[in-house]
């Protein structure tokens, strides 16, 4: 029996698939944003508000990834946006192959911004490239300002951090300055957007960011 030395990281095959998917989507004019967060951070509410605010300025489609159920996709399609529900069958993250399969089930006319709402989890989604053009982490005020200390990889792999439920900040011991400092220590280039999808605070900065990043590709 012959021994073959490999020293390959386990995610090698996924990394290749992700690069291919990212390039193909770019060629079709589709901009994919991977949204990652803990469960209950307000991802679907943030997406809903963004769809409403950008109506007429951007075509937004949404891929909801969950272990089971389709409650999130129902909320999105109620807004008239193209959406699909992907079930991961127990898997705790989306990979490039699953993302491709989900996108294949959607109708695009070109120029869409697609939000991939990843499985609610701050660990494994950070380890698997989905093929997205940007990775965005969502952190809600009630989760606390110490999250960067607990889940450093998520902060390191994200291009932007959206801090949601800012309207609830007065009721929690949430130090926005501490989050910004801790996140920047892990990832100096990370863009940070404190928002409230309820009051609209900070939403226009977040939406301008999406539109300008799409121009950059």
């Amino acid at each position: 029996m012959k021994v073959i030395e490999l020293k390959m990281t386990v995610t090698d095959s996924n990394d290749r698939d992700a690069e291919t998917l990212r390039r193909e989507l770019g060629e079709r004019g589709i901009f994919l944003i991977n949204l990652m967060s803990a469960p209950g951070s307000g991802k679907t509410t943030l997406i809903s508000r963004t769809i409403t605010d950008l109506a007429g300025r951007a075509k937004i489609a949404v891929m909801e990834a969950d272990i089971a159920s389709d409650v999130d996709a129902e909320r999105i399609s109620a807004l008239g946006a193209e959406s699909i529900q992907v079930h991961t069958d127990g898997m705790c993250h989306m990979d490039a192959g699953m993302t491709r399969a989900g996108l294949d089930g959607m109708d695009f006319s070109g120029g869409e911004i697609v939000f991939l709402e990843n499985v609610g989890n701050l660990i494994c989604p950070a380890e698997f490239d989905t093929g997205a053009h940007r990775n965005v982490m969502i952190l809600s005020v009630p989760e606390g300002d110490d999250k960067p200390l607990k889940y450093p990889l998520m902060f390191q792999t994200s291009d932007a951090l959206v801090i949601t439920k800012m309207d609830a900040a007065p009721y929690f011991d949430f130090d926005l300055g501490a989050v910004i400092r801790r996140a920047k220590a892990l990832n100096p280039g990370i863009r940070i957007f404190p928002v409230s999808a309820k009051t609209g605070e900070g939403m226009s900065e977040w939406e301008s960011y999406i539109l300008s990043e799409r121009e950059d590709g």
């Binding site: 390959m8 386990v10 095959s13 898997m91």
Partner: peptide
Amino acid sequence: MHELGIVKHVIRTLHDVAEENGVSRIGS
């Protein structure tokens, strides 16, 4: 479960390696 996905990735990667090296069966 995290490990489920990882094992699937390992096996996928092994298929790529097997094809590149002309291997039809892996012993360990």
